[in-house]
Nucleic acid binder design. Structure first.
Lengths: 155, 155
DNA sequence: AATTTGTAGTTGCACAGGAAACTAATTATG
DNA sequence: CATAATTAGTTTCCTGTGCAACTACAAATT
């Protein structure tokens, strides 16, 4: 294959993710939602399964535990989630949505869905699927190479 | 199309770019290169065209000018680039590679190329091309919607 | 049972991005 | 020509990430 080094930038971690993140943040602000894309990615898990552990949130969003700690700090400051220690294992803290956390699900989900629709407008569905599969394969290829998240943890 | 909100995270700005960035940073460190992925993206432009303006670097990597300022601060501290004011327009500063900046091209490019090869190993070339096109189309779709970078500037 | 090893989460440091306010210089306008 | 609008770049504030050191606790080892 004709390898061009700059592809890895333009292609995977470059301007497209930067722009998507920027637009999504602006769209949240338009709807008076004071959350970030990263915070949303945790909330999205909690809306589906309230009471995850921090470890679980990290494994599923592929973030370092330190990042999870800090994202939850912000969410807790805004009274969107609370951390509840596990009585059986006092190292563990379960993360629960507050009433406020539950109440923003509908609006936030709508913003994300509309932004996503806009992002993929006019692109044939099968191409979007291929793109997703390629990115997932890239993930698998690199995850083998020594990261502490194993495939089974993230699955 | 069957829209799943979480796709926008998993798919475009989620774990794959995070992992690619992480692995690339580690691979730079293994080769004793003290640069980041973001710094590399600027150097890659300079190796092809020395003496870009900061505005140009921002337009081509799709970063805010403030980000460019800070990335160049770091590169200048490491004696990898220097900023030279334009005599004709004293607002403008041209960015030039130093001898050190030129000397790391080969190693840095090799690291990026090998990481990229590893990332796309086993994925049919035509699928990688489709993936790139999809991400570029996503970029175009969202760029229309009110960003100050116009298509012509980034082209 | 006491020590070692492993795990969940936190904190400090360095680096990166977005937005907005700001400076200095240039170009457009009246 | 003088003022207004624009442009290039910097700075500040807030948020997010990686890594490493750290705390607290649990589980395994001897």
């Amino acid at each position: 294959m004709n390898i061009r080094e700059e592809d890895i930038y333009n292609f995977i971690i470059g301007r497209t993710p930067i722009l998507v993140n920027r637009i999504l943040l602006r769209n949240f602000r338009k709807e008076k939602l004071d959350i970030t894309m990263e915070q949303w990615s945790l909330l999205d898990l909690l809306w589906k399964k309230d009471g995850c552990t921090q470890h679980e949130l990290g494994a599923r969003t592929f973030r370092e535990k330190a990042s999870i700690t800090r994202l939850l700090d912000k969410l807790e400051q805004q009274n969107i989630v609370i951390r509840v220690p596990d009585r059986r294992d006092r190292r563990v803290r379960f993360v629960y949505l507050t009433a406020k956390g539950k109440s923003i699900e509908e609006t936030a989900t709508r913003v994300v869905r509309e932004t996503y629709k806009h992002a993929i407008a006019g692109i044939p569905e099968e191409q979007v699927l291929i793109c997703k599969r390629v990115l997932n394969q890239v993930f698998e290829n690199l995850a083998e190479e020594g990261d502490h998240w194993t495939a089974c943890e993230t699955a």
